[in-house]
Design a protein around this nucleic acid. Structure first.
Lengths: 239, 239
DNA sequence: GCAACTTGTGACGTATTTGTGACACGGAGG
DNA sequence: CCTCCGTGTCACAAATACGTCACAAGTTGC
């Protein structure tokens, strides 16, 4: 449920009512937290704020947020420590905020189980962008059925008529994206941003080629016309 | 270890209805008890809380918990006294929490009938780990069956077709993790966090090598294709 | 102290994946 | 009917990920 909600949310804000993803913000600086709470709410997240590590940890259990934004310099607990303890029991994405921008800190954080890292000062939009990346990465694991096609995010498998398609990682990501919102048209740019992320393949017709390959594999399994081409824009799956 | 134990139980709960072990927590500090209740529930125990010795003793009779976690510094009764009285009528495992960490107390507690002893401050995971040890000692636990493979968490044994595989500790941990949720794909990072924990093997292809060894042992016993490679991500067992 | 075993590392071969450019195709508009 | 632009298709080169091996360091038990 979270899964779908988030996978879908990127483009869907305007069209349907859906549960807002809940962000837990653990930050002791009152000014920053107030500002961020506003910005995040604005970006259509529901925000829970805690100003110390202990109550932050409690909130993780009690509220089960979809994502955690964690300040490194908390009065009681070390950010890394919090990350480690969250990781003991859950895979909730964690984004760390910090004043320092050195490599060691970054590595230490990621080793502790953080998923991303943002050095102050930063723009709220950047944080929001990274939040969305993490949400998509983690919660694109829903099981989605579209006609005879079945997309299982947790297993990273796609079936047509109970026959598995052997998709490469990129192919799977692409299918998974399109299937997040059956019927919705994804532009090439949107697809590249979501599937390729920071790797940016700025040139060429990669998307088209991959779509072609996916179609071919679908055809081999007996599926036709699942992926619709929208001339001038991009692609969509039938919905 | 803790992480794994929980993962196993968490995963098992989806498929079979299994009674959660019931823990009786006797603790007067309200903050600690709230946190522990949450942590324990999270670890998939059912928790009963009492905040004094008398009602604690009553609860032992009435609820018949599988294990008792006992704070030493209670307002009405001495922890040792409680332990002794429980022992008059039952062998229910008892774990004592205490502020002091001296040897005499420890000996006194164990003499009174306690099974284990934990000095504050402690991490919840440590408590959970010790709880699991005690439960395992007293009751046998989680057995997972996946096709012809059988994973016995309590005995730390894996069988294929009733033939035992001789797995090294690490190998067992790895298999056990993957089998906690058959079908679910575990990323290398996730595997490292869960199997290696804080020992951090930051470099190299350890996971792959171990998987290869496990596969080889499975093959020797007649099992093929149990562990699926998910390119670009990690591994999963068929399910 | 020796032997057997466990564990992590680095190197290497191989199969798959992935991006690119060239070109064919086809519909929309003139 | 012809042209043009956006797509489909193909083959190829480069990059990458994974499986495997041999080895060294560390443990355990005898």
């Amino acid at each position: 449920m979270t899964a779908r909600a988030n996978a879908v949310r990127a483009g869907a804000k305007e069209e349907m009512v859906m549960k807002k993803p809940c962000i837990l913000l653990v930050e002791d600086d009152h000014d920053i937290s107030r500002l961020l709470t506003l910005e995040l709410s604005d970006a259509d997240f529901s925000v829970i704020h805690r100003d110390n590590g202990i109550s932050g940890l409690l909130a993780v259990r009690e509220q089960e947020p979809e994502l955690i934004v964690l300040d490194l310099g908390l009065p009681d607990l070390d950010g890394a420590e919090i990350a480690r303890r969250v990781r003991k029991t859950s895979e909730t994405p964690i984004i760390i905020l910090t004043a320092a921008d050195d490599v060691e800190t970054k590595v230490a954080m990621l080793n502790a189980g953080a998923d991303d890292y943002l050095a102050k000062p930063f723009h709220a939009e950047e944080l929001i962008a990274r939040i969305n990346v993490q949400l998509r990465r983690r919660y694109s694991s829903a099981v989605q059925r579209i006609g005879d096609m079945l997309v299982d995010g947790a297993r990273r498998q796609v079936f047509w008529d109970d026959q598995e398609l052997r998709l490469s990682p990129r192919e799977f990501e692409l299918v998974n994206l399109l299937c997040a919102q059956p019927g919705r048209v994804y532009s090439r740019e949107e697809i590249e941003r979501n599937v390729w992320g920071d790797d940016l393949p700025p040139s060429s017709n990669v998307v088209d080629v991959h779509i072609a390959n996916i179609r071919s594999k679908l055809r081999d399994a007996g599926g036709f016309g699942i992926i619709r081409t929208v001339r001038g824009i991009g692609y969509a799956v039938k919905g």
